[in-house]
Amino acid sequence: MTLRLRTLVLGFVAMLLAGVVGGAVLVYMGFYDISAMRQHTKPVFHLLDFAMARAIDVRADAVPPGDLGEERRVRAGLAQFQRHCLQCHGAPGVAPEALAFGLTPAPANLLHAGRTWPPSEIQWVVANGVKMTGMPGWGWRLSEEEIWDLVAFVQAMPRLSPRAYAELAGSLPGTAQAAAPVPAPPQPAPDGPATRPGRVDAGRFATQQYLCATCHVIPGVVGANQHVGPPLGGIAGRAYIGGVLPNSPENMVRFLRDPQAVDPLSAMPALGLTEQDARDIAAFLFTLDKVEGK
């Protein structure tokens, strides 16, 4: 080994040891905030997201047992979805339950996975779960057939409007018929006159707590890499909200609190925002006056 090569190897080893020691010191000091109220930092989020994608890609090799588009399989998958998945992931026009708002990383909106993931990868995640995300593995609790039914429904869900989802859900045995979207959660009473003006920093934080980044790409918000709804970069300069309501802070608050009262066809569910949280989020959104990449 030449002197130069030996120096390079020793330098690399020294850098590696320094990184390990430095990481150990930061862990020991409690430097990294593990609170579920705070999202991961960008480097940690992207590392974990990449590691998950690669792990799934390497392991997901199951072959679907026949046509996943069969109506009987989709309906059976919807029944499983309502029992085991709706609480965290929501559905077209239906918000997740309260427990989902306290999870970090935020539970994914499955419309994106249904559109873009191959069935083998959806099947692997349902069967095995994902560590440190709150996503359980259902492989010991559901049969292989039931897991594939779930895959079938997840792949069908992006084609369902809120009304179509509600009608399909209402047609399942043991449920009442439904001709309209599933009712939104009760809205909290408006805050009193002492409600303060919206704050940008509080609004950015609230977008994470209400899982906004599971559907929208939001500049400055970690984890916002899903394209279920439109990206929010430049939303301050748009003429209309949801294509129907003139864009203003007051109208933004109105839309955020009850989207389907503004547009009955909107797939965005009512999330139970308080008046104050809606004002804060509107204040933050009206700082987003530039479209990313432009």
Rank of each mutant, 00 (worst) to 15 (best):
P119G: 09
G220R: 08
D49Q: 02
G192M: 00
L99S: 12
L99F: 06
H227G: 02
L26V: 14
A189C: 04
L285M: 09
I235L: 02
A100T: 04
H84P: 01
A179T: 15
M252D: 05
L285I: 03
N225Q: 07
R59A: 15
M135T: 08
M37K: 14
A267Q: 08
W117C: 03
A169W: 02
M157D: 03
A194N: 08
G30S: 12
K290N: 12
C215D: 04
S161A: 13
R254Y: 03
L256Y: 07
L160D: 05
L99V: 15
I122N: 13
A261K: 09
D33F: 11
M252C: 12
P96Q: 08
V244F: 03
V13A: 08
G272H: 05
P197F: 13
G134H: 03
V25L: 15
A76R: 13
R54W: 13
H112P: 01
F284K: 08
V154S: 01
P183F: 13
V221P: 05
L17Y: 08
F81S: 04
P107M: 05
A113M: 12
G242C: 03
K42T: 08
M268P: 12
G23H: 14
E167A: 05
D49K: 03
L232A: 04
T104A: 06
V63G: 00
M1F: 06
G19Y: 07
S120G: 01
A267L: 06
R73E: 06
T2F: 02
P181I: 04
T207C: 07
L288F: 12
P249S: 10
R83S: 14
D263P: 01
F153R: 00
F31K: 13
A91D: 08
F101S: 03
A62P: 03
R115T: 15
A283E: 06
A239H: 02
R54N: 13
Y32G: 08
R6A: 15
A164I: 02
P65H: 11
G237F: 00
A156C: 05
S35V: 08
A166K: 06
K294E: 14
P190R: 05
G243D: 02
R38Q: 13
W124S: 01
A127N: 04
S171Y: 05
A51P: 01
A236H: 01
M135C: 07
E250T: 09
E70D: 11
Q260G: 01
S161L: 12
C212M: 07
G139K: 11
P181H: 05
L78P: 04
I235F: 00
S143T: 15
Y240C: 00
Y240P: 00
A239T: 04
T287G: 09
H40K: 00
M268Y: 10
Q226V: 01
P186K: 08
G134D: 03
W140I: 09
G203N: 04
V244T: 10
F284G: 05
G90N: 08
L273I: 13
E250S: 09
E97Y: 04
G137A: 14
G22W: 11
F31N: 11
